Simulated assay, not measured.
Amino acid sequence: MKSIPFLQSTLSRKNLMALTGLFLCFFLIIHLLGNLQLLLPAEKAEASFNSYSVLLSGNIFIKIISYVLYFSLIAHAIDALIITIKNKKATVKYAYDDRKKASKWYSRNMGILGTLLLLFLIIHFKDFWYVYKFGDVPLDADGHKNLYLIVINSFSSWWYVLLYVLSMFALGYHLLHGFKSAVRTLGLYHPRYSSYVQTFGMWYSYSITLGFSIIPIYVHLTHFGL
């Protein structure tokens, strides 16, 4: 039986990982914009953030996007694991296998960074998504589930804030390599505008890392002090 070129070129593991990775990059922007409401004054932040949470949980379009998100997370993680295992088992080394001279340390350790992020996601989903969906969550003044209170209580512990910030830096390094790699995999990395892709990827990674890191630090300091 002949193989199908379309499946080989378009739905290969690397292409799937690139597509899911770029979708997750887009989701991170939306997620960060929503979480930035936590930087508002407390009386405004609670109502705004809880209303935002209700919008996300009750909108059919958002629900569809959430299913795409779950698929992307699972597919990206499994695909990365399969590719990593196959690369380690490969007997033929890449031409650039002396990578310490040609690549950054985070490019050589994407598997480790990805594993750390996966562990963080499990904790993150347990503490926020699972509690919001299935836990006994108190209601705010408007009768909405008070996700804001859950977030504030979570960031009351300095060690949790530290874990969150360190995970965001792991995410940032993961993005530094992942964004450029995804663009190259999909054939969009042309020498004419490669510098623009690198610059955008760098600033995107820095913005996501700092944006998500500031939030738990700000919440902890403003609500619980040093």
Score class of each variant (00 low, 15 high):
residue 116 L to P: 02
residue 202 M to Y: 15
residue 98 D to Y: 05
residue 163 L to D: 09
residue 84 T to W: 11
residue 163 L to C: 12
residue 119 L to G: 13
residue 168 M to Q: 06
residue 128 F to D: 03
residue 195 S to L: 11
residue 173 Y to R: 03
residue 192 R to A: 14
residue 117 L to F: 05
residue 127 D to G: 12
residue 110 M to T: 04
residue 127 D to E: 14
residue 120 F to Q: 03
residue 89 K to V: 04
residue 112 I to W: 12
residue 124 H to G: 08
residue 190 H to Q: 12
residue 167 S to D: 07
residue 97 D to S: 13
residue 184 R to Q: 06
residue 188 L to Y: 12
residue 82 I to C: 09
residue 198 Q to G: 02
residue 103 S to F: 07
residue 160 Y to V: 12
residue 118 L to H: 06
residue 199 T to R: 14
residue 79 D to Y: 11
residue 137 V to L: 13
residue 203 W to P: 00
residue 77 A to L: 14
residue 111 G to R: 01
residue 156 S to E: 15
residue 170 A to M: 03
residue 200 F to I: 10
residue 79 D to W: 09
residue 128 F to H: 13
residue 154 S to A: 11
residue 126 K to C: 09
residue 117 L to K: 03
residue 121 L to V: 10
residue 113 L to S: 06
residue 176 L to R: 15
residue 108 R to I: 00
residue 142 D to R: 08
residue 178 G to F: 07
residue 98 D to V: 05
residue 170 A to I: 00
residue 80 A to M: 08
residue 86 K to L: 13
residue 162 L to E: 03
residue 197 V to H: 15
residue 125 F to S: 02
residue 159 W to Y: 11
residue 122 I to A: 06
residue 81 L to R: 01
residue 111 G to Q: 03
residue 150 I to N: 13
residue 83 I to R: 09
residue 153 N to K: 12
residue 150 I to C: 08
residue 118 L to G: 12
residue 180 K to N: 08
residue 192 R to V: 14
residue 92 V to E: 00
residue 99 R to V: 00
residue 102 A to Q: 06
residue 160 Y to A: 07
residue 77 A to M: 13
residue 104 K to V: 02
residue 202 M to T: 14
residue 84 T to V: 01
residue 107 S to Q: 15
residue 181 S to Y: 01
residue 144 H to C: 01
residue 203 W to Y: 15
residue 126 K to H: 10
residue 200 F to V: 05
residue 169 F to N: 10
residue 155 F to M: 06
residue 85 I to R: 13
residue 193 Y to N: 13
residue 86 K to P: 08
residue 170 A to F: 06
residue 177 H to V: 04
residue 158 W to T: 11
residue 204 Y to N: 02
residue 146 N to F: 07
residue 103 S to C: 03
residue 193 Y to Q: 11
residue 162 L to W: 08
residue 194 S to F: 05
residue 166 L to E: 05
residue 107 S to K: 12
residue 108 R to P: 06
residue 161 V to R: 00
residue 91 T to W: 02
residue 80 A to P: 08
residue 151 V to M: 15
residue 193 Y to P: 03
residue 128 F to P: 05
residue 123 I to C: 09
residue 193 Y to L: 04
residue 138 P to K: 03
residue 108 R to D: 04
residue 158 W to R: 12
residue 196 Y to T: 01
residue 135 G to F: 04
residue 151 V to L: 15
residue 197 V to N: 13
residue 176 L to D: 04
residue 84 T to S: 09
residue 138 P to I: 07
residue 152 I to K: 12
residue 167 S to E: 00
residue 92 V to Y: 01
residue 76 H to S: 10
residue 111 G to K: 05
residue 133 K to P: 04
residue 180 K to G: 00
residue 167 S to T: 06
residue 187 G to L: 01
residue 88 K to I: 03
residue 193 Y to M: 09
residue 193 Y to H: 15
residue 206 Y to E: 09
residue 96 Y to N: 15
residue 129 W to D: 07
residue 160 Y to M: 10
residue 205 S to T: 01
residue 123 I to V: 14
residue 199 T to V: 09
